[in-house]
Design a protein around this nucleic acid. Structure first.
Lengths: 139, 139
DNA sequence: GACTAGTCAGTAACGATTACTATATAGTAT
DNA sequence: ATACTATATAGTAATCGTTACTGACTAGTC
């Protein structure tokens, strides 16, 4: 899909920086931490500021192109806007998507009057690589 | 339960500040944001520093007396250390506990090799009060 | 080719958290 | 009780992630 048209459709101006961020995030489904994205893109746009990254990501989020979630208090942007879970390795920090199971039913214990709109869930544990390393250490 | 003994059992020194934080958090099950806790406790301990609050909370967390989670990137400490969900009102920010359902089964789509240890889940929506207000506005 | 709203880079401000250091205190032995 | 030692505290500064502000610039449009 052409990112130009995607941005246009959302009434967003098409600029090289935005295209770069869009390509990087929307074309290939992946996660992005503002700081990392910034460092990557500086190779192509040495004058770009971290601020631009934040503003662009926030704007994409407002337009539903990205979803923001948090891992240990740090923002992560996800081009997969469908509801889904994440799993994060507590050792190396690698982050993967997990399809949301069919347990989206609101907790039965919810006090009446609450209007639940969704949830975000972060599984934590050890990725295969770290699991192996730590498994050896623990054994 | 006497907080003195609890602290002792964990090999933690008993100081007035810690007792105050422990009383405030552990006796009555509740959530605490460091800044708010700090402001509250300053009434009793005008000289106490925010740093002390952070260090105490971190230490309690390390000893399993508290659990730390994040809401929109901000740390919240929870004296309920049993696994459970939270719900947060996106309008007023009120936070409540929800018992964890029996869906702790690891996602079936998890790549093999991962060792999952748990999850944290934050439901979001509108609390009864805000739901009513917003419901009127939207109708 | 000029206009204009929106974007950009740069920097400063901000809030939350952590690090550092000297003083004070809890716990323990004397 | 008193002294001792390890740790907690207060105070401050530093750090990190994020947001706000400003003036220059530019994409989209006429």
């Amino acid at each position: 899909m052409d990112m130009r048209t995607v941005l246009h459709q959302h009434g967003l101006r098409v600029t090289p920086q935005r295209l770069a961020i869009a390509d990087r995030l929307l074309a290939e489904a992946r996660h992005a931490v503002p700081q990392e994205l910034y460092e990557d893109l500086r190779e192509r746009f040495p004058s770009m500021s971290l601020n631009t990254v934040y503003m662009t990501l926030s704007q994409f989020e407002e337009n539903g192109l990205l979803r923001r979630f948090y891992v240990d208090g740090r923002a992560v942007f996800d081009s997969n806007t469908a509801p889904h879970d994440h799993a994060c390795c507590r050792s190396c920090g690698v982050l993967i998507d997990l399809p949301q199971r069919d347990d989206v039913a609101v907790p039965s214990a919810l006090p009446s009057g609450w209007r639940i709109e969704g949830y975000s869930r972060l599984w934590s544990g050890l990725c295969p690589a770290c699991s192996e390393l730590e498994g050896v250490a623990e054994a």
